[in-house]
Amino acid sequence: MTTRESDREPQGDASDSSWTMWARRWVLKHLPPEKLLPDGQPSYVASWIYVFGMGAIASLIYVVASGLVLSLNGPAWYHVSSLGRFVNSSHLWSVELFFMTMVVHLWGKYWMAAWRGGRVLTWITGVISFAVSIVAAFTGYLLQTNFDSQWIAFQAKDALNAVGIGAWFNVANLGQVFMWHIVLLPLAVAAIVALHVLLVRMHGVVPPLEVAASDAQLRADSPAGTDTTIGGGAR
């Protein structure tokens, strides 16, 4: 079987209709490199209230990293040895920090109506990541394997059975809860948080209410002299 020379040449129309070309065009249109990895931010971002989202991500990175160490060494290590108990405790406290920074981030975004300017999906993914994180933390408390976790599981089973999901999410099944906690829920949290961050990059950081008029990130043809960026970045 031979191949003609013309078959090897790029077909303009055919490549335009391929899903890879469609995906490339979509990504470059909605998330060009200068938005994905910007070299500057609007001046209003220079406020402590804009720090807590990044604080939550930093906490989440430590939660995942310490969780990986715990999963590799196992309960016989983190329930008995000094270092294991320390890492186990730091895993808990980083979760506390994660939720505290996430809640302050939520308050800040709520009071500046962060869903403005086409950012509804950014807000919704934030709410979903908060909800999934609560379930992930809940399974973590079940894995303490002490009287506390036994009490929590005993109380929770009634609520989960009442809403009809007890057969699939069985808090009395320690092995199942373990898999939820170290595989499924971390993947879900990571995926939703990644989508949330990408949406922030696509639509830009929401401006405070009083400077909404200077939200140049959504206006490609912002008039000259209204550049409110810091860091000297071209947008």
């Binding site: 001046s43 220079a46 406020s47 402590w48 209230i49 720090v51 807590f52 505290m100 809640v103 302050v104 308050w107 800040g108 810091i230």
Partner: peptide, 16 residues
């Protein structure tokens, strides 16, 4: 959390 929220609103950000 309430204290962090209040301080974030009133404390000046360094370098600005």
């Amino acid at each position: 959390m309430l204290a962090l929220f209040a301080l974030a609103l009133v404390l000046p950000f360094p370098g600005t």
